[in-house]
Design a binder for these strands. Structure first.
Lengths: 224, 224, 224, 224
DNA sequence: GATGAATGAGGCTTCATTCAT
DNA sequence: GATGAATGAAGCCTCATTCAT
């Protein structure tokens, strides 16, 4: 958003040309996300990543200090995409209920798009040393915060019951993640849109106040 | 429905004394669960497991074919504990609603007890070769089935809305698992019992019919 | 031949009952010869030998000091069979030429009978430490001596040319061994009897004197 | 007939620079032949080979897939030297009898040069998996073919008896190999040239026709 | 800046041998 | 005498990382 490309991480590169660093890292991370997602972090070698990225193994170490660093970058790139997609889905919407559903729908869809990578995040975050892991957790809390904020707005508007916002946000987030985590089973039960519909019905029942229900009716009426 | 004494795994040991095999495997698995849970599968060496189990590294291979086999055994032991605890919690209960809450409460508590191991299951199942992974998945489906059965009984009794049983069961299971998966954050927000209470309130709202609510009131009345 | 069963080797057993020692060792060696012959010495484990011999692994070490000791015993048992068969084939024969052919024919046939084991001897003698290997070599020299003696008798009788007896004996022995060593190829070219016939024709040409030829004619005449 | 520059093996190296691959493999194989010859395949560790070759253990695996692959390369390098030396010895010779003796003399001398390695070939070919072993056998058949061809030419020219060419070739080949296989004993009986002389006398008796003898006389006359 | 050959530490696994029962 | 569970040393192989070109 600002003039200079936002630096996602503080990993130090040995190369000075900032634009090149960005490009190279993107190249490396793209390869890494794909490979890590499919084979897991430990089964993927740096040589694999290099090959898929179309660079040499040595080059990677000019943009990264560690293999773990590649993992960090990969995980951050996934979380970043969450942080990017949700606000995008909310753009132009002002009705709290509309925003709430839009945010959650967006979340489910990004998860679906990055399904393997979401699983990767669950599998591999613990493979990071505590300090790098913290970075991941902070980013996750941020994303959750967006969902929580939408929820809070609905509660403040009297559209939803006064539940524990943070906990409920976790339910919502978990619902989205589960589509990835349990996809091996869920895909036999329904497709994504059906999953979203059933889930939203569930959350509506759990959360909406009578006022919320009426409001909801009006939204849906408009939508038709 | 009960845990029929089905043989959990068909991994062949090189030792013939069946009782010894049981004991040794338990020893190995206990060590493995602890180590894998904390350091992850790949960061744990067989030597680590052997040391913690108080045996030699070579011995492990008399009871297991692979390092991966140790993982399989570890994961199965966790899933087995689920399958054991839930029916135990239902023993003596006949009221569908009581059984429903009891089952879910039991689930949350086993997860809490085996918190690290539950995380392990999420992290490491994919590290198994497809055929061993299938074993894990089947066991998981079975456990889910117990939750789903309780839910179905409530629906059949008119106490709960006629939701998609399998999907709703996943929501419940996921809720329990999340306590482990997101414990790093949730523990800052509440303790287990509070987590259960809030979650159950949520599910009650989402699932109970008016008849269910009245019934629920009576149960709680009795409970006091 | 003597009263006490001849002790083939000086390997010390931990068991005192001499008859038992003989029996157990025979059991072990029989299993070892078969396994070593097929899979080679290094690919065969003591457990394999124990299993095939129908005893426990621990028992083997009461009759043998080493795995190498098992190999020594196995090789000796093969060489012993040579030393047994050749004299047996000569029993009752007094004509030098008849004895010569009979000895060589017998040799070829024992080799054929113990084909895999003969290959084993070639493969594995070098796996023994020098002192144990000497034992093998001495036994081999003894066997060669029997062939050489037959040859010398023919020469002394003027039936064969005065060639270097030791070298020629090696040619004869090698001819027999080759049937085992190169069986993978030779079996495509002819069967054992054909191999012997062609080889004997060859050696006859190489060795017989004119007197030898006349004598040979008479033998064959008698044979018909 | 000549050593066409056929690629000896199709083992894939992880290194692309073809010249380097040649050089490294030669380095590794040279070390391996020496060590395997003296200590045997199983007693030699990859670390041993690496040390003797002056490289790291890891490097070997960039040029070879297996320890067995090192053995294969080692054996092939020996057999290749046979295939190289024999044609070289025949260069410029056109007389069938001269060619016959030259080929066999060359064979005996290569065997002498690579004495330990020849023993290695006998000991270790069976240590290879069947498919790699086939490669060895094919190469051996080819070498034998060169000897057999010389023999056939002599027969066709009426200089030698019409024996079974393949079997007789084996006798000749075996004679050469025996110098290596039984060197521990033969060296006490004679030196290489004496061995060759005696052997050739033997084969001359066995194979030459009257015409062959006259021809032989002329050659030797020339030679003096 | 990029390459990729080279290194070497480290892990899994096997198996000869021992020893308590 | 026999058993077979247990040990632990040792070897093969992988792969993150470095460094000369």
């Amino acid at each position: 958003m600002e003039g200079s490309p936002r630096v996602v991480h503080d990993v130090k590169a040995q190369v000075s040309d900032e634009a090149l660093v960005q490009r190279r890292r993107a190249q490396i991370v793209a390869a890494a996300v794909e490979l890590f997602s499919h084979q897991g972090f430990y089964r993927t070698t740096i040589q694999d990543v290099a090959r898929k990225a179309g660079v040499s193994a040595g080059l990677i170490y000019q943009y990264v200090t560690d293999k773990e660093d590649v993992l960090l970058l990969a995980l951050l790139s996934v979380l970043e995409s969450y942080k990017r997609e949700i606000p995008a889905a909310l753009a132009g919407l002002s009705d709290p209920l509309e925003r709430f559903w839009a945010a959650n729908r967006a979340y489910c869809r990004v998860v679906d798009q990055w399904r393997e990578a979401t699983v990767l995040a669950y599998r591999s975050t613990k493979s990071l040393p505590e300090d790098r892991r913290r970075l991941i957790k902070e980013t996750e809390i941020e994303t959750n915060g967006m969902i929580a904020a939408c929820l809070r707005d609905c509660i403040d508007a009297g559209l939803m019951r006064d539940v524990n916002v943070d906990l409920a946000a976790y339910q919502l987030v978990t619902f989205a993640h589960s589509w990835a985590l349990k996809h091996w089973r869920l895909k036999e039960l329904c497709n994504l849109e059906e999953y979203i519909r059933q889930g939203f019905d569930f959350f509506a029942q759990a959360l909406l106040t009578p006022k919320g229900w009426r409001h909801q009716g009006r939204i849906e009426g408009k939508a038709e």
